[in-house]
């Protein structure tokens, strides 16, 4: 079994939340994996795909396929980007057998971070500690396209000092939705505020998710609404506390 992991940090993490990427690498390294970061990586193509621009999405997806063609494992700190690569690439290339062949060859090697920990590394306790009450936001694509529901919660429950509380709208969309958040700004904002109020009611000091896009939306809205709660990627929590 290979211990070589290639990380795809996603464009959002690369540009806006690099610490999430570093945290993910740290957790994986602690578990004995050697991490490689392929410099040529960019984006999975989802923004164009979701907006209906399939040619443009294919251009970017092809680049992704080229960059990671020979990777043993590709681990992503995002449910949404994982779903794009492992579910929607095959739709994108349905009329292109050669590319489809590459997609199917790569699909089984693409892993969302929390699932990789539980199903490949087979650990639920990474030795992390985090003091305080935390609530978990189910990101839509992880929940509904990848069926990731209990995994991240299992990992969080093993964190020393961490108390996990559920918010009443955990499964309800935060309203990000890519370009939707700007095109339908008021609607997206209204959805975010519902989420913020729900987080407020838990009394948690941090909200955790496995998607930086949701966290960007939630944290942006919490700041605007004056709610002082941390928005953290699961990797950041799991990297916390020395082993």
């Amino acid at each position: 079994m290979s211990t070589r992991v290639s990380i795809f940090v996603t464009c959002l993490v690369d540009q806006l939340f690099p610490k999430t990427g570093l945290a993910m690498a740290t957790v994986l390294e602690r578990l004995g994996y050697s991490i490689e970061f392929r410099e040529d990586q960019t984006c999975c193509g989802q923004p164009a795909f979701n907006s209906g621009f399939r040619d443009e999405a294919r251009t970017v997806a092809r680049h992704f396929l080229k960059v990671f063609a020979d990777a043993d494992y590709v681990v992503l700190p995002s449910g949404s980007c994982t779903a794009m690569c492992s579910h929607h690439f095959s739709e994108l290339f349905r009329d292109d057998p050669a590319a489809l062949y590459q997609v199917h060859a790569l699909e089984p090697r693409i892993w969302e971070f929390s699932r990789f920990l539980l199903e490949v590394a087979k650990v639920d306790d990474v030795g992390a500690s985090f003091p305080g009450r935390v609530t978990y936001h189910d990101s839509c694509h992880a929940l509904r396209e990848l069926s990731i529901k209990q995994g991240p919660r299992t990992l969080l429950r093993k964190v020393r000092g961490l108390e996990l509380v559920e918010m009443d709208t955990a499964e309800e969309c935060c309203g990000f939705g890519g370009t939707f958040s700007a095109k339908f700004a008021e609607l997206s904002g209204a959805m975010a505020r519902t989420k913020v109020e729900s987080i407020r009611r838990t009394g948690a000091s941090a909200v955790v998710s496995i998607d930086s896009s949701c966290l960007m939306q939630i944290q942006g809205a919490m700041r605007r609404e004056g709610l002082k709660v941390q928005a953290l990627h699961l990797a950041e929590v799991l990297a916390g506390g020395a082993q």
Partner: peptide, 17 residues
């Protein structure tokens, strides 16, 4: 559109790469 509803994260001083 984004800023009409919520705050915007700015590019990190140093990217992940």
């Amino acid at each position: 559109g984004w800023l009409s509803q919520r705050d915007l994260p700015l590019p990190a001083p140093k990217s992940f790469r």
